[in-house]
Design a protein around this nucleic acid. Structure first.
Length: 197
DNA sequence: TTCCCGATTTACT
DNA sequence: GTAAATCGGGAAA
């Protein structure tokens, strides 16, 4: 399989990259276990100008610093003190754009995913949400800033998803972001059972 | 240092 | 349907 290269992440439109990430394969090699899933749901966060983004208003702190770096690395942060949310940092250095991966469809390492999720049976709830997929794939916020060109967390090439199968809708959980909460920057593959609810 | 709260999930009533 | 879990980041003091 072919790992996505810097050119993919360095394109200048985070929304375009969010759409392009649908169908691609997110792979982790953590604790000696390979797990992989097909990306079926994403959300774009448009850096410093997006009220829903952690970098809004040029906010630059220890946590958000990684968003300002060059595309092609992970931004993972702890949400509600419980969940590790995985983002792909995109575009050029200084823009602070990122794509939240909201759901994947398991492809490899299902047993490991179930074990990490403390579930017995493979049903859609194993990876149908941003906190769930991180737990299933073993992604911890200690991996923030990790390069996606290394061999811990990476994304592999896969055929483009047909345009007619891609749905654009409002982002989830960003009601506080005023007009930005209405932007249709959430993208998912139509009828896929692993979409978050 | 204190205080508030979140790009969520799960287990309840 | 509602609420609890749980803790680091960021703002205020």
């Amino acid at each position: 399989m072919t790992k996505l290269q810097p050119e993919f992440y360095l394109r200048d439109d985070v929304v375009e990259i969010s759409i392009a990430l649908l169908g691609k394969i997110l792979v982790t090699n953590i604790d000696g276990k390979i797990t992989a899933g097909r990306i079926v749901e994403t959300e774009a966060y448009n850096g410093r100008t997006d009220k829903a983004s952690h970098a809004y208003g040029d906010l630059r702190t220890k946590r958000t610093d990684v968003m300002y770096r060059e595309g092609g690395r992970a931004y993972v942060y702890l949400c509600y003190g419980v969940h590790h949310l995985f983002n792909v940092v995109t575009t050029k250095e200084g823009k602070a754009d990122a794509v939240l991966i909201r759901a994947v469809e398991p492809l490899e390492g299902e047993e490991t995913m179930l074990h990490r999720r403390k579930q017995k049976k493979l049903i859609n709830s194993v990876t149908s949400g941003p906190g769930k997929l991180s737990m299933a794939l073993g992604i911890h916020y200690r991996y923030t800033n990790e390069s996606l060109l290394n061999n811990l967390i990476w994304i592999e090439e896969a055929p483009k998803v047909q345009k007619k199968l891609i749905i654009a809708d409002k982002r989830i959980g960003v009601d506080y972001a005023e007009e930005a909460s209405d932007f249709r920057w959430r993208f998912y593959i139509k009828d896929n059972p692993y979409i978050s609810k």
